[in-house]
């Protein structure tokens, strides 16, 4: 399923991190096809008509956090033919958050902030990107 330019969407309430992650992904040559969303809800709306290859999902967000996003995603989008890999990206050190992220069948991997090109490439590589 390797693609030269995977479609990546970023979901994070922090604009700076969105900017940062987009830059890093482009600089690393992972993809030029990146869309950014400031809330889980905005991302879910977008997903109605689009199936990206990769989602980088923040955990702590107001109104709908990363786990709430996942449960909506599970209900409405998880049975699509084309697969989307979800990576949770967070600065959280909370044991519960990290365990929950790792336990979720929807989540490929938990990646620590600050996002680091080498780690991101390795994580995506393990999923065939």
């Amino acid at each position: 399923m390797s693609k030269s330019q995977p479609h990546i969407i970023l979901v994070d309430d922090n604009e700076i991190d969105l900017f940062l992650h987009e830059k890093l992904i482009k600089l690393a040559g992972i993809s030029n096809h990146v869309d950014k969303f400031l809330s889980g809800k905005a991302a879910l709306d977008y997903l109605q008509n689009t199936t990206p290859d990769i989602i980088l999902l923040d955990i702590q967000m107001p109104e709908m956090d990363g786990f709430e996003f996942l449960s909506f995603y599970d209900r409405f989008y998880s049975d699509r033919e084309q697969e989307t890999r979800i990576f949770m990206v967070s600065s959280s050190l909370d044991f519960g958050d990290i365990s929950k992220a790792k336990a979720s069948p929807l989540v490929s991997e938990f990646i620590k902030k600050p996002l680091n090109i080498v780690e991101l490439k390795e994580a995506l590589g393990r999923e065939g990107f």
């Binding site: 922090n14 600065s91 902030k113």
Partner: peptide, 11 residues
């Protein structure tokens, strides 16, 4: 604290 204090630092 694990989030709100760390998040800006990680940014």
């Amino acid at each position: 604290a694990s989030h709100d204090l760390r998040a800006p630092l990680m940014s």
